[in-house]
Structure formats: structure tokens, C-alpha cells
Design a protein around this nucleic acid. Sequence first.
DNA 1: AGCTACATACCAACCGGTCGGTATTGACGG
DNA 2: CCGTCAATACCGACCGGTTGGTATGTAGCT
Lengths: 199, 199
Amino acid sequence: MGRSKAEGGAGVRTRILAAACDLFAEQGYDATSVQQVVDRAGVTKGGLYHYFGAKEDLLVEMYRAVFSERLAALDTILAQGRDPEWTLRAIIDDIVVGTAAMRRESAAVSRELATMDSGRTQRLQADWRRYQEAVRGLIRQAQQDGVFSPVASPEVVSWSIFGVTNSLHTWFRPDGPKPAEMIARELADFVLAGLKAPA
Amino acid sequence: MGRSKAEGGAGVRTRILAAACDLFAEQGYDATSVQQVVDRAGVTKGGLYHYFGAKEDLLVEMYRAVFSERLAALDTILAQGRDPEWTLRAIIDDIVVGTAAMRRESAAVSRELATMDSGRTQRLQADWRRYQEAVRGLIRQAQQDGVFSPVASPEVVSWSIFGVTNSLHTWFRPDGPKPAEMIARELADFVLAGLKAPA
DNA sequence: AGCTACATACCAACCGGTCGGTATTGACGG
DNA sequence: CCGTCAATACCGACCGGTTGGTATGTAGCT
């Protein structure tokens, strides 16, 4: 018997995180008590504080899970050095599919994004701003080069993209008729159609 | 003297609402205590509960302030019976300018939109869904009529629009270089460019 | 024995909300 | 013009319950 107790094979720490993720996404961070988290995870408060130093650490962990993959993917895409259209399509595809795959985490995080500024989160927020700035820079450069139409500013275009991913958790259903890949395709087609139209 | 005390001419009830609005937008509803609200408003808890039955009423009031104007404007626009492009442009213009004019209220409300389902808010949420459905229906019909390109589903397009307004409070500055009218114009141009491009 | 992995019991602070009280007001009678 | 009265506006102390967090205990593995 590898472990001591009833261990359903999930790992207590992971189970706590999953429970917190569900509850934060449903009710919000502040509205969720530590007691609710441990009840759903099937542990006690002592157990939670054995693995996490504070309630906020749960959020920070989700923060990291959501952003780290996206940032890594961004670097990989940019490193290819392809043309703006291909690059922007790749970014949109990654962020839509990635966000859909972690919709509960994304829901929990995106809602509290504005609030948190407790030192440990500032680094992550800065990383996220870098992501956004990369997208805007890509669009800006392509517009200057005449590859994209200057129909709208990079800010408005980028927020159209991020707005979809931020709201994805409110309407996307993984068992629905439209898979994330198709949504990504639609969004990329729509954005590129606007960006390639004649000025 | 018309009034009794130091009354800066603001009206206590209005001052409480303004204070709550700022704090909810900054910290979120749950993270803001009633004590914080009354401290900033310069009144006491007894004073607040004289005007409002519960903390939630403050949110509901903002809810109403944000939505009622938008819904009324929507009906006015739709009643004109103009073509889809004009109608969509008018809607985008109204929602961007209107949201920018009430950015603090919008920030407070949009963040808590998913959470609240306490009977009184369900009516307002239903109204808001009706708004979204009107936009999607407009796009869907125009696509069926061949006026708009079917490049993306009405859902994705509409969330591109609402995504911008939902995130407006994070980057829009009323004293910034770009007025709300210009952002509205850009967004409308961008969306229509995508929607009018050849399939 | 000592370490990890939890459980149990508990705490001070704070939460939203209530309540009895007071100061000020406008309406009305005389 | 004054006195009376009820209503309004607001105060500040207080309540039960809940919060995030901790100190201590203990069962099992090494």
C-alpha cells in the first residue's frame, strides 16, 4: 500500500486546488471561505494550511497555471519568425484553445485580475502585460508595414481578442456543439478579415 | 439655512452610492465592507441602513443605472428600422460611449455579473441577455440575408464587441488622448470591416 | 527518535445588520 | 408668531455568526 489512508489516487494538494478552483470560479475568491474549500476537498483546515501558507496562495497557483503555458507558447510562436497573419492566427488559436482547456482556472483568475497587487502577483501581472504588449506590437508593426489595415488601433483590436477569451467561460461548453478549435478559427478569421480589408 | 449640517450639497444617499461605487470597482463587492463604504462616504452604518435595506441594494442600484440606459437606447435604435450596418454601428457607439461614461459603475457591475442570482438581479440579468440576443439576432439575420459575411458566428462577433466594453475600464482614461467616441468609431469600423469582407 | 501528513480545537478580528436614541424638519392649530 | 407633534435623517453602540489563521496532537513511515 503505497499510501497511508483512503487516498483516492488524487493527491490531497491537487484535490484542494481543484476544489478551490471550482468554488472561486463559481462564487469568486472573496465570497469563498477556506472552510468551503476544505469541505469540498474532503480535508480539514489544518490540512490545507499544511500545503498552503495562505488562502491567497491558492489563487496565485491558478494564476501561474493559467499564464505560464500561454507565455511559453507565445515565445515559441514568436520565435518562428513567420509573417504577421500566421503569427496572429497562431496566437489566437493558442489562447482560445488554452483558455477553453482551463476554463475554471481562467474564470477564477480573470475575475480577480484587477484586484490583486500583493507583490507576488505583480510579477505575474507584468508578464501578462508583456503578452498583451506583444500582440499589440505585432499588429502595430504590420499596420506600419502596410500588411494590416489601420482600420482600428492595436489596442481596440487586441481587446477584441482578449475580450473573447475573458468571456469564454460564460458561454463556452466543452460538451457543446462547437469545439474550442472552431471558435479559435472563427475568431481568427473574423479578426484577420477586419485587418486585411482595404483601408 | 436650508439644511441642518455641513451638507456639501451632495446628498447623503448619493454620496454613499458614489463611495460604494468606487470601492466596489477597486476591490470588488465581497472584499469591500460596509464599514469602508460609510467611512469614505463620511456617514455611519446607521445612516447607510437608513437609505438601503442591505449591502446588496447598493450593487443592484448600480446594476440598474448601468443597464437601464443601455436597454432604452437599444429599443430606440431598433425602432428606427434602419439597415443592419447602421443599426450595429449605432449600438456599438451607444454601448462604448455609455460604458465609458459610467466606467466605475460598469467595472463594479461587470465583475459581479456572474455571481449574483438573488431574485431581484435575475430580472436585470434577463434584460441583459435580451440585449445580447438582440445583437446576435441582428448579425444572424444580416448574415442569412447575405448583407454580412458568415466569416464568424454571431456569438463570436458579439463577444468581440462586449469583450471590449467589459474590459474598457482597465485601459480607458477619460482624460487620455483618445475619447470614447473615437474608440467606438474604431471598434465599429473594425467589426464592420470583418463583417463586410467577402466570404 | 524524528519527520511528514494530516486532524482537532480554538482564537481574535471582523462581518453584515439591528436598535434605541437624538437632532432637525415641515405641517398645523391657535 | 409660537407651541406641538409626527416624521425624517442620522448616529453609535452592539449582536450573533463567520472569517482567515494557528497551536497542538497524533498516526504512520523511515
